[in-house]
Design a binder for these strands. Structure first.
Length: 806
RNA sequence: GCCGGGGUGGUGGAACGGUAGACACGAAGGACUUAAAAUCCUUUGAGGUUAACCCCUCAUGCGGGUUCGAUUCCCGCUCCCGGCACCA
């Protein structure tokens, strides 16, 4: 008999697939489409490890399954090729980022091709290619012309090692997402995208998406919507008024002081020319310095100073002293806060500086209530707390009183309802070389001017030293820097910052619909045919980065009428977050030296075995530990499959209930993305078939198709062994025979007091009485109940019998 | 602190509220072999009981509850992982 030789089979079929062009996608209005997308890889020089593989295998299983179910598939691949690591690697190797990137792509493309996916390589894209970033720049211009891209001076995150600014989303616990350096704050003029305009849509529309809850929760958390009121207040003895945001307006009546952020623009006016000016400004300088260096610790550095000013009796309960407080943020709400005893920081601050406090809410427990009234303990945010003031709200539970409080405040004309968000506009400028240049020109006469669309792309020059030194490398290129003003034709200079790579990846899923279009970013009809993405696969790490940006760009382009495939502009209907693969308890990474490369495993076991093990290792959405020996179990399974198909198949119309059952469960398991149990059920089936030696020719065909999404090469070969001359992927997914399943004998457990004591075999057409009589008549059950009185008998049809005895 | 996700054999893990540990790895024993590898067969949660088969008890992080029946649902803890964290 032939031995299973996966390497030979796999190379053979990969060649046949490529030559036949069978995975090329074309629009076909008569067929339902299925857009199956992987988050495209960043082409790193270290190549793929088995953790990267997992997602590509899973998406391929789903795509092939959908293909067999009659869908027109779009399953593309490309390269997120701009970005810092390519530049850093190029500096280290004294190479050029474009050369480094090209080499890395060639290697990773080779690796991905080894997986044997049904990717349509004719649609490959590369974000660092001028034919691609031309349209990244074009999208920038559309946003710019519609007020969604703007430049402003603002305190921004600066990574001293990467020598560039970063978006908030790219700072992880105060550190650079890429290199891990401590990020500092700087005041710089930078380009932003107005993602905050879409904050509410980005939040609301999450509800309609078939995404993992945890990913939605991360986005909700990041957007950080808060509802409350804004109070209008006047400064005593000065002609200055300001507003104060309060998300807990229930206890507003107890507010006894106000705090202002150290970097608030109004602060100087409050103290100007008074005895407080010097100490206040000294304090401000001290705090701001700490904050700029990111050395500020909220709890340790709870500090403040009195400004000498008061809010003029805002609630009729007296004037509120205004303090500068270290913990107040100038860029959230209005940067000024009213304080009461019912906020922990306010409480601690007041205690520290002996500022009088009031209470407006008490706990139910009277002993605690007394302590709260005496201001001995902090008390707030207790859902059971009872409001004491004002009279009109007295007795209400705190949590339920929010709406009533807002109504009350609006009626009394103290303030108005307001919504605030934590999300900030997306900072997209980068002072680095390897990115898409921002298509803006500065003219002495005309000012900031967008580049004319017919001049795109603005290509990256190659006459620069791209090593980072704090200024944009593009400034050095004379041929890049100097240009003519698009409006007056006079001397002008170009913007020398490049765009965040996340801009490039925020629209690539649109480009796949029409990847070679030179006249537009993508043909509208093609976009409307393929989009939205039906199933998107990628890691959780992009929950508030790529996924948020991509949703924003799609929504913005929809609002501008540039695309209209979905009225909400949601690009990804269904999302699946692949779990990571760990080795020795740690995430695989080259720096930790715990990387398992697919290359040697393919050499030893073949691609299909590795595909199978990647799917079998554990639930696809959870992290899993790589077991060095694990793959051998899948390899043995494939050998078993191979041996059965290469032995004499029986020519019989006999049915096999397990075949029907396996088709049913595997179908459900692919639909619900449980590839690990799907594989285990296939293993079970083949254990059964090899033991009973009863695989019929008819079933062999259906089972070959059933195996094919997971093991495409082997299945093609089995298909050929069965005498077929077409591809197995030209077939239809097998149906199962429910009738055969229902005719099967059922094993019914008999419990006594909830513990299984025996198992009987029944037919599904037996009556309840027959079954119960049978259950009580077995030796084991008879002896178990003989001494006792039966209180009750529970029968769940075809599931279980439970006899309750004394 | 807040928001997610998790805790089941030696290991990865399985189980619409219904036989806990499927499937696989590893281990042990046996067959084949001069031998090893490969392959095949058997055993494999802990404890008790038995000459043996049987059988029994305990066991899904901890403590309660609901239920004829709970890994699954509810309440209260605890530990681990991830995210956010001065957001008023």
């Amino acid at each position: 008999m032939n031995k299973y030789n996966p390497q030979e089979i796999e190379i053979k079929w990969q060649k046949i697939w490529e030559e036949s062009g069978m995975y090329k996608s074309e629009e076909n209005p008569d067929k339902p489409k299925f857009y199956c997308l992987d988050m495209f890889p960043y082409p790193s020089g270290s190549g793929l490890h088995v953790g990267h593989w997992r997602g590509y295998v899973l998406s391929d299983v789903v795509a092939r399954y959908q293909l067999l179910n009659g869908k027109n598939i779009l399953h593309p691949m490309g390269w997120d090729a701009f970005g810092l690591p390519a530049e850093n690697a190029a500096i280290k190797n004294q190479s050029h980022p474009s050369i480094y990137t090209k080499e890395a792509i060639n290697n990773i493309r080779r690796q991905i091709k080894q997986i044997g996916t049904m990717i349509d390589w004719s649609r490959e894209i590369n974000t660092s290619d001028p034919s691609y970033y031309k349209w990244t720049q074009w999208i920038f211009l559309q946003l710019y012309k519609n007020g969604l891209a703007y430049r402003k001076k603002a305190p921004v995150n600066w990574c001293p090692s990467c020598q560039t600014v970063l978006a908030n989303e790219q700072v992880v616990s105060g550190e650079c997402e890429r290199c891990g350096s401590q990020v500092i704050n700087k005041d710089l003029t930078q380009w932003f995208f107005k993602i905050t305009d879409f904050a509410d849509d980005l939040l609301e529309d999450l509800d309609g998406l078939d995404w993992p809850e945890r990913t939605k929760a991360l986005q909700r958390n990041w957007i950080g919507k808060s509802e409350g009121v804004i109070f209008r207040e006047k400064v005593k003895d000065l002609n200055i008024s300001f507003e104060v945001y309060d998300s807990v307006p229930q206890t507003f009546i107890a507010q006894t002081f106000a705090v202002i952020a150290p970097d608030h623009p109004l602060l100087k006016k409050l103290v100007e020319g008074t005895e407080h000016e010097k100490p206040v400004m000294d304090f401000v300088e001290k705090i701001n310095k700490k904050k700029l260096q990111n050395k500020f610790d909220v709890d340790k550095d709870l500090e403040g100073i009195f400004t000498g000013r008061y809010v003029d009796n805002p609630f009729g309960t007296g004037d509120l002293p205004i303090w500068v407080a270290s913990y107040v943020l100038s860029d959230y709400g209005t940067g000024i806060v009213n304080c009461s005893a019912h906020d922990e920081r306010d409480f601690n601050f007041a205690k520290k500086y002996d500022i009088p406090l009031n209470t407006a809410m008490l706990p139910k427990d009277s002993i605690r209530a007394e302590k709260v009234e005496k201001l001995e303990i902090y008390y707030g945010r207790d859902p059971e707390g009872i409001l004491q003031l004002p009279e009109e709200l007295k007795g209400m539970k705190w949590i339920a009183a929010k709406e009533k409080s807002i109504d009350y405040i609006e009626k009394k004309e103290l303030g108005y309802r307001s919504t605030q968000y934590k999300i900030r506009d997306w900072l997209i400028s980068r002072q680095r070389y390897w990115g898409a240049p921002i298509p803006i020109v500065y003219c002495d006469k005309c000012g900031e001017m967008p580049v004319l669309e017919d001049q795109l792309p603005i290509e990256l020059p190659d006459d620069v030293e791209f090593k980072p030194h704090g200024k944009s490398p593009l400034k050095e290129s004379k041929k890049f820097l100097y240009t003519k003003c698009p409006s007056c034709g006079g001397q002008a200079t170009r913007e020398t910052d490049t765009m965040d790579t996340f801009v490039c990846s925020s629209w690539y899923y649109l480009r796949y619909a029409d990847p070679t279009n030179a006249n537009s970013f993508a043909d509208k009809d093609k976009v409307n045919y393929w989009l939205p993405v039906d199933f998107y696969f990628g890691g959780i790490e992009h929950a508030v980065l790529h996924l948020l940006y991509a949703r924003f760009i799609s929504k913005a382009l929809t609002k501008l009428g540039i695309i209209d495939y979905d009225d909400k502009g949601e690009p990804f209907k269904r999302l699946f977050n692949i779990g990571m693969i760990y080795l020795h308890g740690a995430k695989m990474s080259k720096s930790k030296g715990n990387v398992v490369s697919p290359d040697e495993l393919i050499e030893k076991y073949g691609t299909d075995a590795l595909r199978g093990y990647e799917m079998f290792i554990g639930p696809a959405d959870l992290d899993s530990e790589w077991q060095v020996q694990g793959i051998s179990g899948v390899y043995r399974f494939l050998e078993k499959v191979w041996n059965i198909y290469n032995s004499e198949l029986i020519d019989s119309a006999d049915v096999d209930p397990l075949v029907e059952k396996t088709i049913k469960t595997v179908t459900l398991e692919i639909e619900s993305v449980h590839p690990n149990t799907a594989i285990s059920h296939l293993m079970e089936l083949f254990n059964h078939l090899s033991k009973n030696n009863n695989l019929s020719k008819q079933n062999a065909e259906r089972i070959a198709i059933l195996l094919s999404p997971f093991f495409p090469h082997l299945s093609e070969e089995l298909w050929q062994i069965l005498g077929k001359d077409k591809s197995v992927f030209a077939e239809t997914w097998p149906a199962f025979n429910e009738e055969i399943l229902s005719e099967e004998k059922i094993k019914l457990p008999i419990q006594i007091n909830g513990k299984v004591r025996d198992i009987i075999e029944i037919n599904s057409d037996m009556s309840e009485e027959e079954i119960l009589n049978l259950a009580k008549s077995t030796e084991k059950i008879k002896s178990a109940i003989s001494e006792s009185r039966v209180i009750k008998t529970v029968y769940i049809p075809l599931k279980i019998v439970n006899i309750v005895i004394e």
